[in-house]
Amino acid sequence: LTDEELVTMSVRELNQHLRGLSKEEIIQLKQRRRTLKNRGY
């Protein structure tokens, strides 16, 4: 997933992508998404 996709994707879509990932990967992705959102994309 690109940063842009992460930010513009709805939470529902995101959760579908996260299905099948490990807990660590999910946590990393969610942190990255929060960081991007805070940057004001």
Rank of each mutant, 00 (worst) to 15 (best):
V11H: 11
L14N: 00
L6C: 00
E4D: 10
Y41H: 13
T35D: 14
K30L: 15
V7Q: 06
E13P: 00
N15A: 12
L18G: 03
K37L: 15
L36I: 05
G40C: 15
G20K: 09
E24S: 13
R34C: 13
S10N: 06
G20R: 08
R32G: 00
I26W: 05
E4N: 08
L29T: 06
Q16V: 11
Q28C: 13
R19K: 13
L6K: 01
R19N: 08
Y41A: 12
E13Y: 03
L18R: 01
R34W: 08
R39D: 10
Y41W: 11
N38P: 03
L14S: 00
N15K: 14
E13S: 05
E4G: 06
R34K: 11
T8F: 08
L18P: 00
N38V: 06
L21W: 06
I27M: 12
R12G: 07
Y41C: 12
L18Q: 02
N38A: 10
L6I: 05
K37E: 05
R19T: 07
M9Q: 02
N38Q: 09
R32V: 01
L21R: 09
E4F: 14
T35L: 15
M9I: 05
T35R: 14
D3W: 04
L6V: 03
E24W: 11
V11P: 08
E4C: 14
R19D: 06
S22M: 05
L1A: 02
M9G: 01
V7L: 13
R32N: 00
R19F: 07
Q28A: 15
K30H: 08
L6N: 00
Q31L: 12
N15W: 14
N15R: 15
L29H: 03
E5S: 04
E24A: 12
I27A: 12
S10W: 00
N38M: 10
T8I: 07
E4M: 12
L29S: 01
L29Y: 06
S22P: 10
R33A: 05
T8E: 08
R12F: 09
N38T: 08
D3A: 03
R19W: 05
G40A: 11
L1D: 01
L18N: 02
D3T: 02
L21D: 00
I26F: 04
E4Y: 15
L21Y: 07
T2F: 02
N15P: 01
Q16Y: 12
K37T: 05
L21N: 02
E5I: 07
R39Q: 15
N38G: 09
L14H: 00
Q28P: 02
T35N: 14
L18H: 01
Q16S: 09
K37A: 05
T8H: 14
I26N: 04
R19A: 09
H17G: 02
E25L: 13
S10M: 03
K37D: 03
E13T: 06
K30S: 04
V11Q: 10
Q28F: 13
R34E: 09
Q16F: 13
T2I: 02
G20S: 07
Y41G: 12
L29Q: 02
E25K: 09
D3Y: 03
I26H: 04
E13W: 03
E25C: 08
K23R: 12
T2A: 04
M9A: 02
T8Y: 08
G40D: 11
V11I: 14
L6M: 02
L6E: 01
T8V: 07
R32T: 00
T35K: 14
T2M: 03
D3Q: 02
D3R: 01
L36V: 03
L36D: 01
E4P: 03
E25D: 08
E4V: 08
T8W: 06
S10F: 01
R34Y: 05
R12H: 11
S10R: 04
L1Y: 04
Y41I: 13
E25R: 07
V7A: 09
K30D: 02
T2E: 03
L18V: 07
V7Y: 08
K23Q: 10
K23A: 09
L29D: 00
L6F: 00
E5Q: 15
S22K: 07
D3M: 03
R33T: 03
R12L: 08
D3P: 02
V7S: 07
Q16G: 06
E13G: 03
Q28N: 10
K23M: 11
G20L: 08
R34A: 11
Q28K: 14
R12E: 12
Q28E: 12
R32Q: 02
V7F: 09
G20I: 05
I26V: 11
V11D: 13
R33E: 03
R32E: 00
K30N: 05
E25P: 00
Q31Y: 08
R33L: 14
E25M: 12
E5C: 14
Q28L: 13
R34F: 05
L6P: 00
L29I: 15
T8G: 11
S10L: 03
S10E: 03
E5P: 00
R33Q: 06
E13H: 05
R34G: 04
R39G: 13
Q28Y: 14
S22E: 05
Q31W: 08
Q31D: 07
K30C: 13
I27P: 01
L36T: 02
R33M: 09
T2R: 04
E25G: 04
K37N: 05
G40E: 13
Q16N: 12
Y41K: 12
G40K: 11
R33H: 12
L6Y: 00
G40Q: 14
L36F: 01
N15G: 06
K23H: 10
K37Y: 06
T2N: 04
I27Q: 12
S10K: 04
T35I: 15
D3E: 03
V7W: 06
S10G: 06
N15D: 07
G40W: 14
L21K: 13
D3N: 04
T8A: 13
R34P: 00
N38I: 08
Q28I: 13
K30Q: 08
L36K: 02
R32S: 00
I26A: 15
